[in-house]
Amino acid sequence: MSNSSKFRKSAELLSAVCGSLLMGASVIPQAVLAQQPTNQQQINQTTSQVNPCPRIFYEAPHNNQVAVPQGCPPNAYTQQLIDQGQLNQSNVPANPTAEQIRLGVGGEAGSATNPNPTILNEAPYNRSQSGLQPQGSVQPETTQPSVTPASQTPTDQSVTPYPSQQQSPSARIATVNGRVNIRLVNDTAATVTYQVIGDTAPRSLPGKSNVTLQGLAAPVTVTFQREDGGLLQATPQTSSQSGQLEVRLKETTSQGQDRRALRIENNGSVFLN
Protein backbone atom coordinates (compact mmCIF):
# COMPACT_ATOMS: atom_id res chain seq x y z
CA MET A 1 0.00 0.00 0.00
CA SER A 2 1.33 3.40 -0.95
CA ASN A 3 2.06 6.12 1.55
CA SER A 4 -0.72 8.34 0.14
CA SER A 5 -3.35 5.62 0.71
CA LYS A 6 -2.23 5.10 4.31
CA PHE A 7 -2.38 8.83 5.00
CA ARG A 8 -5.92 9.12 3.56
CA LYS A 9 -7.25 6.22 5.72
CA SER A 10 -5.69 7.71 8.87
CA ALA A 11 -7.34 11.08 8.16
CA GLU A 12 -10.77 9.46 7.68
CA LEU A 13 -10.43 7.53 10.97
CA LEU A 14 -9.43 10.67 12.89
CA SER A 15 -12.38 12.61 11.41
CA ALA A 16 -14.88 9.94 12.52
CA VAL A 17 -13.52 9.88 16.09
CA CYS A 18 -13.70 13.69 16.45
CA GLY A 19 -17.25 13.81 15.09
CA SER A 20 -18.43 11.28 17.70
CA LEU A 21 -16.87 13.30 20.53
CA LEU A 22 -18.55 16.52 19.38
CA MET A 23 -22.00 14.88 19.21
CA GLY A 24 -21.64 13.48 22.75
CA ALA A 25 -20.55 16.85 24.15
CA SER A 26 -23.67 18.60 22.74
CA VAL A 27 -26.03 16.09 24.40
CA ILE A 28 -24.61 16.30 27.97
CA PRO A 29 -25.47 20.02 28.73
CA GLN A 30 -29.03 19.56 27.44
CA ALA A 31 -29.57 16.58 29.75
CA VAL A 32 -28.16 18.49 32.75
CA LEU A 33 -30.31 21.56 32.04
CA ALA A 34 -33.43 19.41 31.74
CA GLN A 35 -32.85 18.14 35.30
CA GLN A 36 -32.39 21.62 36.86
CA PRO A 37 -35.55 23.63 37.80
CA THR A 38 -35.56 27.26 36.83
CA ASN A 39 -35.28 30.02 39.44
CA GLN A 40 -38.80 31.13 38.58
CA GLN A 41 -40.19 27.66 39.37
CA GLN A 42 -38.45 27.68 42.75
CA ILE A 43 -39.83 31.16 43.49
CA ASN A 44 -43.36 30.10 42.51
CA GLN A 45 -43.17 27.01 44.76
CA THR A 46 -41.98 29.11 47.71
CA THR A 47 -44.55 31.86 47.13
CA SER A 48 -47.46 29.42 46.93
CA GLN A 49 -46.73 28.27 50.51
CA VAL A 50 -46.83 31.75 52.14
CA ASN A 51 -50.02 32.70 53.99
CA PRO A 52 -50.51 36.52 53.91
CA CYS A 53 -52.88 36.34 56.92
CA PRO A 54 -51.03 34.21 59.53
CA ARG A 55 -52.74 33.15 62.75
CA ILE A 56 -50.48 35.38 64.86
CA PHE A 57 -52.48 38.48 63.78
CA TYR A 58 -55.60 37.04 65.48
CA GLU A 59 -53.93 35.95 68.77
CA ALA A 60 -53.08 37.96 71.88
CA PRO A 61 -51.35 40.35 72.14
CA HIS A 62 -51.17 41.12 68.39
CA ASN A 63 -54.98 40.84 68.02
CA ASN A 64 -55.32 44.12 69.98
CA GLN A 65 -52.02 45.80 69.01
CA VAL A 66 -51.13 45.12 65.35
CA ALA A 67 -53.15 45.98 62.23
CA VAL A 68 -53.51 43.12 59.71
CA PRO A 69 -52.01 43.44 56.19
CA GLN A 70 -54.23 44.82 53.45
CA GLY A 71 -56.48 42.11 52.04
CA CYS A 72 -56.88 40.18 55.33
CA PRO A 73 -60.12 40.06 57.38
CA PRO A 74 -59.75 42.57 60.27
CA ASN A 75 -58.65 41.53 63.74
CA ALA A 76 -59.84 43.44 66.85
CA TYR A 77 -57.27 46.24 66.48
CA THR A 78 -57.92 46.71 62.75
CA GLN A 79 -61.68 46.88 63.40
CA GLN A 80 -61.04 49.53 66.05
CA LEU A 81 -59.13 51.64 63.50
CA ILE A 82 -62.03 51.23 61.07
CA ASP A 83 -64.56 52.31 63.71
CA GLN A 84 -62.41 55.37 64.47
CA GLY A 85 -62.28 56.31 60.78
CA GLN A 86 -58.49 55.84 60.58
CA LEU A 87 -58.68 52.96 58.09
CA ASN A 88 -60.71 52.66 54.90
CA GLN A 89 -63.25 49.83 55.21
CA SER A 90 -62.95 49.09 51.47
CA ASN A 91 -59.32 48.04 51.96
CA VAL A 92 -60.27 45.33 54.48
CA PRO A 93 -62.59 42.48 53.38
CA ALA A 94 -65.20 41.32 55.87
CA ASN A 95 -64.81 37.67 54.89
CA PRO A 96 -61.82 35.57 53.78
CA THR A 97 -61.37 34.79 50.10
CA ALA A 98 -61.42 31.26 48.68
CA GLU A 99 -57.61 31.24 48.53
CA GLN A 100 -57.36 32.44 52.16
CA ILE A 101 -59.76 29.68 53.23
CA ARG A 102 -57.60 27.13 51.42
CA LEU A 103 -54.50 28.35 53.26
CA GLY A 104 -56.41 28.84 56.50
CA VAL A 105 -57.03 32.46 57.56
CA GLY A 106 -55.45 32.80 60.96
CA GLY A 107 -53.51 29.58 60.26
CA GLU A 108 -50.69 28.34 58.08
CA ALA A 109 -50.42 26.50 54.76
CA GLY A 110 -49.13 23.17 56.07
CA SER A 111 -47.07 22.19 59.09
CA ALA A 112 -43.77 23.01 57.34
CA THR A 113 -44.62 26.72 57.15
CA ASN A 114 -43.09 28.98 59.80
CA PRO A 115 -45.96 30.53 61.83
CA ASN A 116 -43.67 33.39 62.89
CA PRO A 117 -42.19 34.43 59.50
CA THR A 118 -39.48 37.07 59.25
CA ILE A 119 -41.85 39.27 57.23
CA LEU A 120 -43.49 40.27 60.55
CA ASN A 121 -40.24 42.08 61.41
CA GLU A 122 -40.14 43.97 58.11
CA ALA A 123 -42.06 47.01 56.84
CA PRO A 124 -44.99 47.47 56.71
CA TYR A 125 -46.01 44.61 59.06
CA ASN A 126 -43.67 45.64 61.91
CA ARG A 127 -45.53 48.94 62.40
CA SER A 128 -48.69 49.54 64.43
CA GLN A 129 -50.38 52.48 66.10
CA SER A 130 -49.27 51.22 69.51
CA GLY A 131 -45.63 51.01 68.40
CA LEU A 132 -45.39 47.37 69.51
CA GLN A 133 -43.99 44.57 67.37
CA PRO A 134 -44.58 40.80 67.53
CA GLN A 135 -42.26 39.17 70.05
CA GLY A 136 -41.28 35.59 70.78
CA SER A 137 -41.75 32.56 68.60
CA VAL A 138 -44.70 30.28 67.93
CA GLN A 139 -44.35 26.53 67.53
CA PRO A 140 -45.51 25.26 64.12
CA GLU A 141 -48.76 23.35 63.97
CA THR A 142 -48.61 19.60 63.35
CA THR A 143 -52.29 19.31 62.47
CA GLN A 144 -54.41 20.90 59.78
CA PRO A 145 -55.23 24.49 60.88
CA SER A 146 -58.86 25.32 61.46
CA VAL A 147 -60.73 27.77 59.22
CA THR A 148 -62.73 30.58 60.78
CA PRO A 149 -66.45 29.75 60.31
CA ALA A 150 -68.41 32.11 58.10
CA SER A 151 -70.75 32.83 61.02
CA GLN A 152 -67.85 34.02 63.19
CA THR A 153 -65.52 36.27 61.22
CA PRO A 154 -62.91 38.45 62.93
CA THR A 155 -65.33 41.37 62.72
CA ASP A 156 -67.48 39.67 65.39
CA GLN A 157 -64.72 40.04 67.97
CA SER A 158 -64.94 42.72 70.64
CA VAL A 159 -62.92 45.84 69.86
CA THR A 160 -61.79 46.14 73.48
CA PRO A 161 -60.85 43.05 75.57
CA TYR A 162 -62.35 42.55 79.01
CA PRO A 163 -59.70 44.22 81.19
CA SER A 164 -61.29 42.89 84.40
CA GLN A 165 -59.98 39.46 83.37
CA GLN A 166 -56.43 40.73 82.84
CA GLN A 167 -55.54 43.39 85.44
CA SER A 168 -56.51 45.18 88.61
CA PRO A 169 -58.58 48.38 88.29
CA SER A 170 -56.74 51.70 88.23
CA ALA A 171 -59.58 53.37 90.16
CA ARG A 172 -63.19 52.90 91.28
CA ILE A 173 -66.12 55.30 91.10
CA ALA A 174 -69.76 55.11 92.14
CA THR A 175 -72.09 55.26 89.14
CA VAL A 176 -75.35 57.22 89.28
CA ASN A 177 -78.21 55.20 87.83
CA GLY A 178 -75.63 53.30 85.80
CA ARG A 179 -74.18 56.48 84.26
CA VAL A 180 -70.89 58.39 84.62
CA ASN A 181 -69.33 61.68 83.59
CA ILE A 182 -65.75 61.67 82.28
CA ARG A 183 -63.62 64.82 82.10
CA LEU A 184 -60.65 64.51 79.73
CA VAL A 185 -57.84 67.01 80.41
CA ASN A 186 -55.22 67.32 77.68
CA ASP A 187 -52.05 68.57 79.39
CA THR A 188 -49.95 68.03 76.26
CA ALA A 189 -49.21 70.57 73.54
CA ALA A 190 -50.47 68.17 70.88
CA THR A 191 -54.02 67.57 69.67
CA VAL A 192 -55.60 64.39 71.02
CA THR A 193 -58.26 62.42 69.12
CA TYR A 194 -60.83 60.74 71.39
CA GLN A 195 -63.96 58.65 70.82
CA VAL A 196 -66.68 57.04 72.93
CA ILE A 197 -66.95 53.60 71.32
CA GLY A 198 -70.46 52.94 70.02
CA ASP A 199 -71.60 56.46 70.96
CA THR A 200 -69.62 59.20 69.20
CA ALA A 201 -67.44 59.64 66.15
CA PRO A 202 -63.74 60.56 66.62
CA ARG A 203 -63.34 64.09 67.98
CA SER A 204 -60.36 66.40 68.47
CA LEU A 205 -59.21 67.84 71.80
CA PRO A 206 -56.60 70.60 71.31
CA GLY A 207 -53.55 70.82 73.54
CA LYS A 208 -53.95 72.45 76.96
CA SER A 209 -57.74 72.07 76.91
CA ASN A 210 -60.39 69.78 78.39
CA VAL A 211 -63.82 68.32 77.65
CA THR A 212 -66.50 66.67 79.79
CA LEU A 213 -68.41 63.67 78.47
CA GLN A 214 -71.71 63.55 80.34
CA GLY A 215 -74.27 60.83 80.97
CA LEU A 216 -72.28 57.88 79.59
CA ALA A 217 -73.94 54.53 80.29
CA ALA A 218 -71.63 51.97 81.90
CA PRO A 219 -69.97 49.84 80.74
CA VAL A 220 -68.31 52.41 78.49
CA THR A 221 -65.03 52.57 76.58
CA VAL A 222 -63.25 55.79 75.56
CA THR A 223 -60.21 55.71 73.26
CA PHE A 224 -57.67 58.50 72.85
CA GLN A 225 -54.38 59.06 71.02
CA ARG A 226 -52.08 61.90 70.05
CA GLU A 227 -52.44 62.97 66.42
CA ASP A 228 -48.64 63.39 66.16
CA GLY A 229 -48.15 59.72 67.11
CA GLY A 230 -46.54 60.47 70.48
CA LEU A 231 -47.05 58.45 73.67
CA LEU A 232 -49.70 59.32 76.27
CA GLN A 233 -49.74 58.76 80.02
CA ALA A 234 -53.31 58.71 81.38
CA THR A 235 -53.93 59.30 85.09
CA PRO A 236 -57.47 58.82 86.51
CA GLN A 237 -58.57 61.02 89.41
CA THR A 238 -61.78 60.33 91.32
CA SER A 239 -64.06 63.02 92.72
CA SER A 240 -66.05 63.33 95.91
CA GLN A 241 -69.09 63.69 93.67
CA SER A 242 -70.59 60.36 92.60
CA GLY A 243 -70.29 59.34 88.97
CA GLN A 244 -67.46 61.79 88.23
CA LEU A 245 -64.03 60.79 86.86
CA GLU A 246 -61.21 63.02 85.62
CA VAL A 247 -58.49 61.64 83.33
CA ARG A 248 -55.36 63.74 82.78
CA LEU A 249 -53.36 63.07 79.61
CA LYS A 250 -49.63 63.88 79.64
CA GLU A 251 -46.60 63.26 77.43
CA THR A 252 -44.39 60.27 78.18
CA THR A 253 -41.33 58.65 76.60
CA SER A 254 -41.95 55.28 78.25
CA GLN A 255 -43.63 52.64 76.10
CA GLY A 256 -44.79 50.88 79.27
CA GLN A 257 -46.74 53.98 80.40
CA ASP A 258 -48.44 54.57 77.06
CA ARG A 259 -52.24 54.25 77.29
CA ARG A 260 -54.84 54.40 74.49
CA ALA A 261 -58.17 53.35 76.07
CA LEU A 262 -60.25 53.87 79.22
CA ARG A 263 -63.03 51.45 80.27
CA ILE A 264 -65.51 51.75 83.13
CA GLU A 265 -67.37 48.57 84.08
CA ASN A 266 -70.89 48.29 85.49
CA ASN A 267 -69.50 48.13 89.04
CA GLY A 268 -67.51 51.36 88.60
CA SER A 269 -64.11 49.71 88.13
CA VAL A 270 -61.82 51.85 85.95
CA PHE A 271 -59.26 50.22 83.66
CA LEU A 272 -56.60 51.82 81.45
CA ASN A 273 -55.01 50.03 78.48
Results as ranks from 00 to 15, higher is better:
I56S: 12
T191L: 01
I43C: 10
Q89M: 11
N267R: 09
T46S: 15
R263K: 10
I119E: 14
T235P: 00
R8Y: 09
V66P: 01
G207S: 03
Q195N: 09
G136V: 01
V50H: 12
L13H: 13
L205R: 02
P149H: 06
R248C: 04
G256F: 09
G178D: 04
N114G: 03
P29G: 05
E265R: 10
Q40I: 13
G268F: 08
L205E: 02
Q30E: 11
S26H: 07
T155S: 14
A60G: 06
V92N: 05
T223K: 04
V220P: 01
T153D: 08
L132E: 11
D187M: 05
L22T: 05
N266A: 15
V138Y: 11
Q157V: 02
S151D: 14
Q167W: 00
G110T: 06
I101F: 03
Q255Y: 01
A218K: 06
R226C: 02
Q86V: 07
Q65N: 12
T118I: 15
L87K: 07
Q233D: 13
R260L: 12
P149Q: 05
I197V: 12
R226P: 01
I43M: 15
T212Q: 11
R203G: 14
I182E: 03
S168N: 14
S168A: 14
T235F: 00
P117D: 08
Q165Y: 08
I82A: 07
T193H: 02
T200Q: 07
S130R: 08
R102V: 11
G71R: 05
L262N: 07
E108D: 13
V247H: 01
R248G: 06
V196D: 03
G24P: 00
E108S: 13
A25K: 06
S151C: 06
N114E: 09
R226V: 00
T47G: 13
P52I: 02
P236A: 02
L22R: 04
A94G: 15
Q166L: 11
T238G: 14
Q144G: 07
Q152G: 02
G85Y: 07
V176K: 10
H62P: 00
R263P: 00
A94D: 11
Q165A: 10
P219K: 06
P202N: 04
S15L: 14
L33A: 14
L231T: 05
S15I: 09
R179P: 00
S48T: 05
Q139V: 09
G19D: 08
G71Y: 03
V192P: 11
N64P: 00
Q41L: 15
A123Q: 10
E227V: 15
G243M: 05
R172D: 11
I264F: 01
Y125N: 13
P236C: 05
V180G: 01
Q65Y: 09
N91Q: 15
L272I: 01
Y58L: 04
V27Y: 08
I197K: 00
